[in-house]
Amino acid sequence: MAESGSINDLKKKKEFKLNNTVVLFIVLIILFAVFSYVGKPFFFSKLNLIPMLNNLSFIGIVAAVLTMVMVSGEIDFSVGGNIGLTACLTAFLIDKGMPGWLVVILALFSGLVMGAFNGMIVTVIGVNSIIATIGTMFIWRGIGYTLTNGESILAINPVIDYIGRGFIFKVIPFPIILLVITFIITYLVMNHSKWGRKIYAIGSNPIASFLSGINVKKVKFINFLICGVTASLGGLILTSLTAVGMPQHGQGLELVIVSSIILGGTALGGGRGQILGTLAGVLILSILYNFLTIMNIYYFYIQIVQGAVLILVVSTYEIRQSLAKRRI
């Protein structure tokens, strides 16, 4: 009797087990409610929320795609440098009088080239992606500095303006549309597509995936390509939001993005991770930053809080995991 009772108890517990993504969204909603109340009336206002969403749009877009790279067991630290270089290139070309649409195409193409370069070093030569992309992170930013002589260049052009500051139906900011589209596509890819299945399989066991006939290198290479293009899209948005291209754009952003992804539950070693988790991670870090800023908290303290939150959340993952293991 006692035994069967305990088995049923454990089964029940399993049914009620919340997954990390759901927990994150609950945390997000609670934070949002608390911030709206404490930060009355500024936090929950159009004047605050719209710019906040604009600012997190490019972070979210890059984070969604970088999640794919990370689930496959790789990482791309060069996204921040990519954003800087793309911003410089965009402003540089606009300044030279090139038409806006062509600049957009060239900017995205530059991302493709950067992604291909990362992909080549990692998959063909076999350099660890942490090292490879820290290397290219410096290279991209260095090229940005070279291109602009270290100065800021104004980037004023109707097409560029629209990317970061335009509205659809006169109310919805264009970058938000881009963000939503990116998350819908990456969600479909990761949760429902053949490509996504391959990504999870590779992250879970690259050797078994290769021995099952999956072209591991090809999948990883294309992931890097897409990541490069996406980071450049992020660079375009940031250039548009600030109306200026400068080599410091996106500095340190790679760590913010990777932090959001890890906060969202993606494992560094690959194989585990959810697009919606990343979305929650990005939103939590962004509203936290926003709230502390409008509460007039000194920037230095904000950094401390952001770092602490990351460690706190990841610690809870580890604790939950080791608890689960001990139970078994």
Partner: peptide
């Protein structure tokens, strides 16, 4: 090490070498 994606499910593993045929 060589045969299974251990953290994935039974169905994902059975179809692992034939993903392109799943639709």
């Amino acid at each position: 090490v060589e045969g299974l994606a251990l953290i994935m499910g039974v169905k994902e593993n059975i179809t692992l070498s034939n993903i392109s045929d799943l639709g």
